[in-house]
């Protein structure tokens, strides 16, 4: 029994935190091989080989793999699949695009956002925006699933797995990369940040959202947003925390001007400490908050930013 773990590579760099957390989820399942497949895989493969719990790194490098397109990556994974009992990946936009395609090509189901691996066939996963947790037994010959990384801690480094080259398969040439518009940011990544500051509808405008960003920067935090804030154009979609955005579990989550719809709570309720700042004292977010501050965010947030200066300078 061995597991193929699909790793994500961005501009030659391994998404190390996500891979390290997925490795910890896979620990009950035996030998793990990490597939590093991109246009520029050398450094990422080296990085993967150092993670604990990796017994082999498969490195594929080809221009067709450079932009994470589902069709060539799925074809590659299908070619490797016969050697594996499980195929897994961190639950990200990258893998959610690819693994269901792989599953259908292998005539098996896919499980998304697994939060617990009981044994080789049995997995927990949230449904209904995390309002219910299902325990599911799979009867498929190959189990394919994505892992909700916020439910696991990262494995450490210190490994030295061998790196093996593997060939890309012929690109089916069904889709073609045009461009990536990515926001380069000095801030920590939302899904691995120790502190997340999120703003919601109550923030009022895109301009006023700068106040949330200032507070986050002061705390060395990642910036998040509710679906409402994204819908209203206050914040970009890749900041969205919730059922249809990212799921985070930082040590400290500050929800500012967020009422706390179940879809938002689904994305942050596993945070260690939750602080909610809202003028409506009946806001549902207060039901999950460890510390509730009722009041006008437009005076509270600048005051908090100013007073935290001492803490973080």
């Amino acid at each position: 029994m061995s597991v193929l773990l699909l790793a994500e590579v961005n501009q030659g760099r391994l998404a190390t935190d996500a891979v390290a957390k997925t490795l910890s989820a896979l620990s009950p399942l035996g030998e793990v091989h990490v597939l590093v497949a991109s246009g520029d895989s050398e450094a990422a493969a080296q990085e993967a080989s150092r993670l604990q719990g990796v017994s082999r790194v498969l490195m594929a490098q080809d221009v067709s793999l450079a932009h994470g397109l589902a069709e060539p990556l799925a074809a590659l994974i299908v070619s490797l699949a016969p050697a594996y009992s499980h195929i897994a990946a961190p639950a990200t936009a990258f893998s959610k695009n690819i693994l269901p395609r792989v599953a259908s090509l292998l005539d098996v189901m896919v499980l998304s956002d697994v939060t617990h691996v009981h044994d080789a066939e049995t997995f927990d996963r949230p449904v209904y925006a995390g309002n219910a947790i299902q325990t599911v037994v799979s009867a498929d010959p190959i189990k394919i699933f994505t892992v909700r990384t916020s439910s696991f801690s990262a494995v450490g480094e210190g490994g030295s797995a061998p790196i093996e080259r593997t060939d890309a398969v012929a690109d089916p040439e069904l889709s073609f990369w045009v461009e990536d518009v990515s926001v380069v940011s000095e801030r920590p990544d939302l899904t691995s940040a120790r502190v997340v500051v999120s703003g919601g509808r109550g923030v009022g405008s895109k301009e006023k959202f700068d106040m949330i960003i200032d507070l986050a920067d002061r705390m060395g935090a990642a910036v998040g947003a509710s679906r409402a804030a994204v819908d209203l154009g206050y914040a970009p979609n890749d900041w969205q925390v919730g059922q249809t955005g990212k799921v985070v579990a930082p040590e400290l989550y500050l929800a500012v001007g967020i009422s706390g719809a179940i879809q938002h709570l689904a994305g942050m309720k596993d945070s260690k400490v939750i602080v909610a700042i809202n003028k409506d004292e009946d806001a549902p977010v207060f039901r999950v908050a460890d510390y509730a501050l009722v009041g006008d965010l437009f005076s509270i947030v600048p005051e908090l930013t100013k007073k935290l200066e001492k803490q973080f300078s």
């Binding site: 599911v136 602080v275 460890d290 501050l293």
Partner: peptide
């Protein structure tokens, strides 16, 4: 292909405390 053997509620968070000022927070 999948058999759902159990569906449970996730662990519930309990509400915490009200703080009255930024300093207290």
């Amino acid at each position: 292909r999948l058999k759902v053997v159990r569906t449970i509620e996730p662990p519930q968070r309990s509400a915490g405390v009200r703080v009255s000022s930024v300093d207290e927070l």
